[in-house]
Amino acid sequence: MPDVRDALMIGKRSDGKLVRRPLSPHLQVYKPQVSSSTSIINRMTGIALSVGLILMVWWLVAAASGPKSFAVAQGFIGSPIGLILMFGWTLSLWYHFFNGIRHLLWDMGWGFEIKTSHQTALVVVAATAVMTVICWIIGLAVWL
Rank of each mutant, 00 (worst) to 15 (best):
L49S: 12
S14P: 04
S50R: 14
I10G: 08
Q33T: 14
D15C: 00
P25A: 07
G100T: 08
V133N: 06
R20V: 02
A129L: 14
I77A: 11
S36V: 15
S69Q: 12
P32G: 09
A121C: 01
L85K: 02
G75M: 09
R13T: 05
S69E: 09
L27D: 10
S117D: 09
Q28C: 11
A62I: 05
L60F: 10
A71D: 10
W110N: 01
L91A: 14
I81F: 03
V125W: 00
I81L: 06
V34K: 10
S24W: 08
V133D: 06
W59D: 13
L53D: 06
I40T: 14
G111A: 00
Q28T: 13
S37E: 08
M86F: 15
A64W: 00
F76W: 15
Q28K: 15
W59N: 13
M56R: 13
L91K: 13
T38C: 13
R21Y: 07
M86R: 14
L85I: 07
K115P: 10
Q28G: 12
T38D: 05
L105D: 06
K31Y: 15
P80N: 00
A62S: 07
A48K: 05
P32E: 13
K12L: 01
V124C: 08
G52Y: 11
L27G: 14
V130N: 03
G46E: 06
K17D: 08
R21G: 01
I77V: 12
T128A: 01
G16C: 05
L85V: 04
Y95W: 00
G16A: 04
W94N: 03
D107A: 10
F76P: 05
I114S: 12
P80F: 00
Q33E: 15
L55R: 13
L93D: 08
P22W: 12
A73P: 06
L53E: 06
A127S: 11
G78W: 03
G111Q: 07
L105A: 01
G88V: 10
G52L: 14
V61K: 10
S14K: 00
T90S: 14
G78S: 12
R43P: 08
H103G: 10
L122W: 00
G46R: 15
A73V: 08
A63F: 10
L85T: 05
K12Y: 09
T128R: 03
A129Y: 02
L91G: 12
R20M: 09
R43V: 07
V61G: 01
A62C: 09
S79M: 00
G82Q: 05
Y30C: 09
M9N: 05
T116E: 11
D15P: 04
G78F: 03
L23I: 06
P32F: 11
S69N: 09
S35Q: 12
I10F: 04
Q119H: 10
G100D: 06
R102W: 00
S92A: 13
R102P: 08
M131Q: 05
A63Q: 08
L49P: 15
L18T: 03
G82E: 03
K12T: 08
E113L: 11
W136R: 07
K12D: 02
F76N: 01
